[in-house]
Amino acid sequence: MAVQLKINGHHQVIDADPSTPLLWVLRDHLGMTGTKFGCGIAQCGACTVHVDGMATRSCQVPVESVDGAEITTIEGLSQKGDHPLQKAWVELNVPQCGYCQSGMLMAAAALLKVNPKPTDEDINESVNNICRCGTYSRIKAAIHKAAEASQV
């Protein structure tokens, strides 16, 4: 079965088993590996993408259920890796191993869209992905920094 998706602004026709999770369509069928596999059961958030603007854990989304949807992945978050969050992430040296960070960035970007000046509690609630390396305090600081930068 062919599914139509609009990914980072480009139309894609995907020929895959319709039950295939969106995560594996991105990573395997399309070779877009910025979106990570961490758990496969919507627990860790490493696979977070935007589906019609909403932060979504793509490992639990059968590709058939997003037929026609607009998807944004880390590769499409900005043109040159210069989204205010990405800049803040580099400036504050947020990543350790880095494996969770594209999911963190996508969750944070979706949060800032609806809540341009989030509190720590807002972040705890919306960016509740797992980072085994323990970079949470820097993630929070970087979100606040990007929020400020976007408001000037």
Binding site: S78, W89, P95
Partner: peptide, 11 residues
């Protein structure tokens, strides 16, 4: 900072 940060944040 880590030299691979830019590659991490753009995926």
């Amino acid at each position: 900072g880590k030299l691979n940060n830019p590659a991490i944040v753009d995926g």
